[in-house]
Computed example of a mutant assay.
Amino acid sequence: MAAVACLVAGAQVVRLAAVFTLAWTHSVQKSEWQEDWRATPGGLVLQEVRVQGSGAGMEPPEGAVRAGGFYVARPQLAPQLSVILRRSGATADWRVCTQGRCRPMGDLVAADADPVELKICD
């Protein structure tokens, strides 16, 4: 059976897909950041990062090239057992994109859940 990612917020568990994108807008720079992830038996693999601009802690990753209005990079990061997503309430919510459709994370788990863990489903 193929690996699938889940969002875990307290007792709430939401199955995503094997391939998905996390997206958000930086609170100061108002620049878009997108990360493509793939669930594997060994963990979550970051496949590609796209950053609309730079500044205020949003520097494009090393080796990024400019394409289509974004800096695009393929970071060499070891598979992650989990990724913790924090929600301050001071910025727009994370967006979770699967099969070409993006939704605020609050459509999937409680809007006030913090932190939310992204991990491989059990």
Rank of each mutant, 00 (worst) to 15 (best):
90 A>F: 14
30 K>Q: 09
31 S>I: 10
69 G>H: 08
75 P>Y: 12
79 P>S: 05
27 S>W: 08
91 T>W: 14
23 A>W: 09
84 I>L: 09
51 V>L: 11
19 V>Q: 02
86 R>E: 15
63 G>C: 04
107 D>F: 07
27 S>K: 11
42 G>D: 01
11 A>C: 01
79 P>V: 05
23 A>G: 13
121 C>P: 04
46 L>A: 01
15 R>C: 05
110 A>F: 05
35 E>D: 04
75 P>A: 11
42 G>M: 01
115 P>W: 14
112 D>G: 00
29 Q>F: 09
52 Q>K: 01
41 P>N: 10
68 G>F: 09
67 A>I: 04
23 A>I: 04
59 E>S: 08
96 V>K: 06
82 S>Q: 05
106 G>E: 00
107 D>A: 12
47 Q>V: 13
80 Q>W: 02
49 V>K: 02
3 A>D: 06
100 G>Q: 05
23 A>H: 03
118 L>F: 06
48 E>S: 10
99 Q>P: 02
100 G>L: 09
107 D>H: 13
108 L>Y: 03
31 S>W: 05
54 S>H: 09
116 V>M: 08
114 D>C: 08
56 A>E: 12
50 R>W: 13
35 E>L: 01
69 G>A: 07
75 P>R: 14
50 R>C: 15
86 R>I: 10
118 L>Y: 10
50 R>M: 15
71 Y>W: 14
117 E>W: 04
10 G>H: 02
47 Q>W: 10
111 A>C: 08
51 V>D: 12
42 G>A: 06
64 A>C: 11
12 Q>W: 04
119 K>N: 07
87 R>K: 12
77 L>E: 15
92 A>K: 12
68 G>L: 01
7 L>P: 00
49 V>S: 15
87 R>E: 09
58 M>F: 08
13 V>G: 02
35 E>M: 09
50 R>I: 15
32 E>F: 05
62 E>W: 11
98 T>R: 00
64 A>F: 14
55 G>R: 03
39 A>T: 03
5 A>S: 00
24 W>C: 12
15 R>H: 05
60 P>Y: 11
75 P>N: 12
61 P>Q: 08
32 E>L: 13
92 A>F: 10
82 S>G: 01
50 R>L: 15
115 P>E: 14
23 A>C: 08
115 P>I: 15
108 L>Q: 01
63 G>N: 14
